[in-house]
Amino acid sequence: MSFQPVKFYQTGTFTVGNRLLAPQERSVQANMERTNSLNSGHRACQGCGEALGARYAIDAAMHATDNQLIAANATGCLEVFSTPYPETSWQIPWMHSLFGNAPAVATGIAAAIKIKRQKGLKDDVRVVAQGGDGGTTDIGFGCLSGMFERNDDVLYICYDNGGYMNTGVQRSSATPPAARTATTMPVGPQPGNVFGQGKFMPAIAMAHEIPYVATATVADLRDLEHKVKKAMTFRGARYIHILVPCPLGWGSASQDTIKLSRLAKETGMFPVFEAEYGELTNSSKIRRLLPVEEYLRPQKRFAHLFGKSPAVATIARLQALADKNIRKYEMLDKEAN
């Protein structure tokens, strides 16, 4: 048997931190002095994946920019739960304008920074725009595409929880097929969200051939932080799409948020990868391949698939989508399998 490399830290690199790691190898979130860009007291639901993802991403971006960061935020859960007057949870310069314009607002901020730098500003201030899947793939799509196309120096982060959760769980173009939402009820001949619709924004971002596109989940913090930091090494438009489970909208237990994120990747339902200038450069390999049922079952939005007579055909279609992801984004480690 060949030995594992000696650099093995009790629990590998999967935990947030580890006392055995050298400080520079620890995650941002393990740091006692992490920014907590999104601070306590916000009004997100228990177990909110978006609140978690936002702190992960923005803290990492703060780390990468030496705290020289400004954020533009689309309307949505993240905005509503973080900044209801008279309290804000943000500890960074942050701006909310509208639902569909966060990328353009960010363009404006970045342009203003560019001019300020020309006029002598020393700080290399970077700009992040963020929004939910509705604000990104639907109403903000035009502004986002424009920002990509101009290659403005903005990192756009989409927190994808697969629906309009803030308004009461309606379907978005990121809602997965078969999922129950308030506007795709599990009734009629095709219960839940229909197959054959929806869009996968990361692929669209790649089509713009912007410098950097990545997907991530809140289950793999180190990967997420790595991608945010990597994104900050590029100038120009960058896009990171983070899967963030929503206990409310998914009908999942609040403590299962990370578990579901993990299962989304391990079943192939959500591909985790990186792309540069339109080409796939890296994909996170599935560690323990599981059938999609493992991911679907804990979520009430898919409960109609698992009744007395399970919707075998529908589950098979979802499995086929996962299999396609696995092929397309090379999610299996060829050497290991």
Binding site: I70, A72, A104, G108, A111, A112, C143
Partner: peptide
Amino acid sequence: SVAIGSSATGA
């Protein structure tokens, strides 16, 4: 929207 962003950044 761009104007909003840049104006809020002091431009």
